[in-house]
């Protein structure tokens, strides 16, 4: 399961970051780390990008990037 599959309001715990190179580093620099809990807040009106809360702040990213972030749904 990946982050792009979560619906607004759902929370996931990151299990793996599939991206490589600059995108991976950028994600990590923004606090997107394995083990971190991430909550999907909103999907943009046109369907992409999405807004998530991570490390107590709001981050937006495109679905394409979110698809590379594997998560486990947290109830």
């Amino acid at each position: 399961m990946n982050l792009a599959m979560l619906k607004p309001g759902e929370i996931g715990q990151i299990t793996q970051i599939g991206a490589i190179g600059p995108i991976k580093r950028r994600l990590m620099d923004m606090g997107v780390l394995v083990g971190e809990k991430v909550k999907v807040e909103k999907i943009a009106p046109l369907g992409d990008p999405i807004e998530v809360t991570i490390k107590n702040y709001n981050l937006s990213l495109r679905k394409k990037e979110a698809e590379g972030i594997l998560v486990e749904a947290v109830k």
Binding site: P22, I23, R26, L27, M30, N58, L59, S60, R62, E65
Partner: peptide
């Protein structure tokens, strides 16, 4: 280019 942006 990536779109990984803070919503401050």
């Amino acid at each position: 280019p990536m779109f990984i942006m803070e919503l401050p």
